[in-house]
Computed example of a mutant assay.
Amino acid sequence: MYKVMIVDDMEIIRRQIKRLPLWGEETGFHIVEEAEDGKDALDKLQKQSVDLLITDIKMPRIDGVELLKEVDEHQLARCVVFLSEHSEFSFAKEAIQYGIFDYLVKPVQREELQKLLLKAQQYIEEEREKESQLKKLEDRLSEKLEVYYPEHHIESIIQYISAGDAQQALPAIEAMVTDTGAALERDPIKTAVLLEKSYGEILKGIYQHHQWLDQFVDKALLVNINLTNCGDIEAMKVHIVAALGILEATIAQLILRGKKSPLIAEICSYVLENVEQSISISTISEVLFLTKNYIGDLFKQETGMTIGEYITMVKMERAKQLIAEGTLRNYEVADRLGYKDAEYFGKLFKKNVGLSPMEFKNALRDEARGR
């Protein structure tokens, strides 16, 4: 069975497509879900991916092109087909960049849909066969991971990244890619499969050290790494270094290293783990059983920053992630981080980030459109 979702803000269009006598046992394509706009579709796709997504281009909230980007990035559908008026084919160039499968012109004709379903079926079966072969290869290689890249080397990379040590981490990551490729005679498919396994082990290890990371980076983007599309080992190296570099840089930024005292990292970890709670120097001193004056003076002396300034910086970094996720309004972000005055939160955000929350959101949107 092939799962299908239809997305259009006009119910009459969705109904017209559903009435075409091509769904069900005859073709194997079954409509399992429909949505009235891109936002509704994205919410449903995150719960259940589909094989074929047929979507309008011009829709409120999230349009077809934005939906395509999200689907491509998070692998939520195998084939995306645009429903369009003839005048809307100007979207073609951007759509091709994000892997559009095909187009259907409204109103959808039975013959055109039938051709598309046959084409989609062939493509989906080919993709399933590739995935099956990759899974078998992965299973064989994973059993011999220790042979190709020793576990203690992977553990070293985990330790370097977890310590925010770019000087040690980045060369070690590059060496892992180079050594794995050499051990597999630079076979791109085998190297990609094994590196994805090593990458997964590293990611798991880092998150065990720093469980708070989820709140400051988009884990979904990091987890959904696909090296088999890289083509060559150098491209794989760039991809892995970039992904793990995000984690190393985030850790280095948020876990301040004291010149002498290990207490600094402990204070940072507590703030990071409780970023959405009400935190102050008083709550930290109670948890650590130390006086406010002692930890305040020590933190300032070791880092050059007051604990209050650090707490604000961490909360603003969390705010950036919440804004990027796009599910909360600005006042909801403020409230979630313990700021009852949304206007004060906005001023604090601009002071620390350089942009207002709305400007930051718009900048993210413009960046996504420019990719």
Rank of each mutant, 00 (worst) to 15 (best):
T180W: 06
R14V: 09
L145F: 06
A166F: 07
L194M: 01
Q75C: 13
G370L: 15
L263M: 11
K144E: 08
L272Q: 02
S156R: 09
P357F: 11
E26K: 15
K44L: 10
V217I: 07
L22P: 05
Q46S: 12
L213M: 06
R329F: 14
K130G: 08
L298R: 03
Q167E: 10
R329A: 09
L76T: 09
M358V: 15
A265G: 08
R336Y: 05
K204A: 14
E273I: 03
G205W: 00
E73R: 15
D341V: 03
Y148W: 05
E70T: 08
L222C: 04
G24K: 02
P262G: 10
S87W: 05
G258T: 06
Y331Q: 03
I62P: 05
E34F: 11
E174F: 00
I17R: 09
L322D: 07
I57C: 03
M358W: 15
A175V: 06
Q277K: 12
Q114N: 14
V71S: 00
A163S: 07
L76Y: 05
N293Q: 14
E332A: 04
A120C: 04
H239F: 09
S198W: 05
I233D: 01
T55N: 04
L244R: 00
E151G: 10
H209G: 08
K300Y: 10
K119S: 12
G181P: 02
P171Y: 07
E151P: 09
A175K: 11
T180I: 06
K135P: 01
G354Y: 03
I13V: 15
L256A: 08
I264G: 06
G164A: 03
L68Q: 12
A192E: 00
G326R: 04
L83F: 00
L53A: 08
R365L: 12
I255G: 11
A220H: 06
V238Y: 11
V217T: 03
P21D: 10
I62T: 08
V275S: 04
T327G: 01
T250K: 04
K47M: 10
L22M: 06
G28Y: 13
D8C: 04
F289C: 08
F101R: 13
L170F: 12
P188S: 08
R329L: 12
